[in-house]
Design a protein around this nucleic acid. Sequence first.
DNA 1: ACAGAGATCATCT
DNA 2: GATGATCTCTGTG
Length: 188
Amino acid sequence: MDALTILRDGGDPVALARGLIGRKFLVAGAGGLIVETEAYSRDDAASHSFRGPRTANAAMFGPPGTIYVYRSYGLHWCLNIVAAPGAAVLLRALAPTHGLDVMAERRGPVPPHLLCAGPGRLARALGVTGVLDGASLFGPPFALGPGIDAPAVLTGPRIGISRDTERPWRFGLSGSRSLSRPFPKASH
DNA sequence: ACAGAGATCATCT
DNA sequence: GATGATCTCTGTG
């Protein structure tokens, strides 16, 4: 199923995670091409939705297109897009194309390809914080547009989790220099 | 290149 | 009291 269809009607977070690779994502005019994502489902021990709705994860149980922002390790922000109630896609990395100056200001002196190479870095560069938790992808400050036509997508295990570690639910744009980490060899 | 530590806090055990 | 969907800096090889 197409990513835009899932966002409109709801659907599989794995299909959405794969389908978002190569698309353009902007927050208030800053952003770039999505080059890395991860899927988290409702019955997934690694997912924040696994133990059911809480105050902190309420947005993850919203309708498709809801933005779920959580604080990671007490200090970073991470941004998700809801695919269906309790299921979402973590945006892990972008290849910067728009608002390089603003993002560099927020991130400090780092090489351009590292501006958004990681979920915490991405949120920082785009100015994403908890105030956007629960917002809708379909309105300002967000913009999702077309990008690469038929991207070559890599698949691999998710990063930084300790439960359900075997699910191959991390996706990346083949050949991108802006990945948070390389993919294991022979992942297609 | 790789390993370890510190930052920092809401949620869970 | 421990644990994260992390990042950065520092020390060593």
